[in-house]
Amino acid sequence: MIFPSTAGQTVGPYFAIGLPWSEGSHAVAPGTAGAITLRGVIYDGAGKPIPDFLLETWQADPAGRFADLHGHGGPSEIVGFRGFARVGHEDGDGSFELLTVKPGPLATASGTIAAPHIDVSLFARGLLHRCVTRFYFADEEAANAVDPVLATVSPERRETLLAKPAEGGYEIDIHLQGPEETVFFAL
């Protein structure tokens, strides 16, 4: 028997009493070799930073290994690698910052090579369910050029998925609407 899946509902304005974790923004332990910060600002359709959001990321380590439940390909060998970050703000300035390492390329089921990427979930008041996007890296030009997902995005919108090198790591903003609207995915 197949059951229908449970519907989502908005995370609302008060998630901060339950969801943020201490050190939630650390996908790797501080001091990890090659650690980078990933930062950006989330904007609404009026071009204003949104003060309340919950952002989560999930990714492989540089060797393409995950800190996952299933042990795919063996667990990450990086001590303290979580591969998962959760950043929640209830009345911030729209900005997020997390500590991680740059993921490696991954083989896909169809034999292509996925460029280094981080999967992103965004939850907020006013979002009735999760928005999914990805962070790619602007300095992975060769890998990005053959990435099977980027290939499905029009060249003018592809830019919205690229984190750009910045001091200590990378920067990428998320625009929920507007001329620079971020590409969001149906998963």
Binding site: W58, A60, L69, F84, A109, T152, Q177
Partner: peptide, 26 residues
């Protein structure tokens, strides 16, 4: 002001989508 207006793009499920965080480290 918060809902994306462009159509969502189909994301094939690969290893990043098929894995999830282990609890022990969270």
């Amino acid at each position: 002001l918060r809902h994306p207006k462009q159509p969502l793009i189909y994301l094939p499920q690969n290893i990043t989508e098929l894995t999830g965080p282990a609890l022990g480290s969270l």
